[in-house]
Simulated assay, not measured.
Amino acid sequence: MKPLFTEREIRGVAIFLPLALLALGVALLARPRTDAGAAREAETNQRHATRRDTLRPKPFDPNTVSYEQLREMGLTQTEAASLVRYRSYDKIFRIPEDVAACYGIDDSLYRVLKPHIRIARRYTTAPQGYRPGRMVAEPLPPEQFRIDTVSARYLEAIGALTRQQARTFVKWRDTHPICDMAELHKCYAVSDSVATALEPYIIFSEREPAAPRYPIELNDADSATLLLVNGIGEKTAGRIVRYRERLGGYWRTEQLTEVEGMTESNYEKISAQICCDSCRIRKIHINFAPASELQRHPYLTPQLLRRILKTRQLKGGWSTPEAFNEDNRLKPGEAARLAPYLSFAPPGGDDDE
Rank of each mutant, 00 (worst) to 15 (best):
P209M: 01
D220F: 11
Y201R: 03
A211H: 09
T175P: 04
P177A: 01
E206M: 10
P212F: 03
Y201L: 03
L198Q: 00
A182G: 10
A197S: 13
N219E: 10
L161E: 05
M181W: 11
A189I: 12
A197M: 12
I202C: 03
T196P: 06
L161A: 06
H185R: 11
E206A: 11
K186I: 03
R213H: 11
E208L: 08
A197H: 09
T196H: 14
R207N: 06
R173K: 04
Y154F: 01
H185C: 03
A195Q: 08
E156W: 06
E217D: 15
P212N: 01
D192G: 05
P212K: 01
C179T: 12
I216F: 00
A160T: 03
Q165P: 14
P209L: 04
R163E: 15
T175W: 02
A197N: 10
E183C: 03
R213M: 06
A157H: 13
D180C: 08
P200T: 04
R173E: 01
A197W: 15
V190W: 12
Q165T: 10
C179S: 07
M181E: 09
H185M: 06
Y201Q: 02
A166C: 13
T162G: 15
K171D: 14
E217W: 07
W172F: 10
Q164V: 14
E206W: 11
D220G: 10
A189N: 12
D174W: 05
V194R: 11
C187A: 15
W172E: 05
D174E: 15
C179M: 03
H176Q: 01
D174V: 07
Y201N: 04
T162Q: 12
E206V: 13
I178Q: 01
I216L: 00
F204T: 09
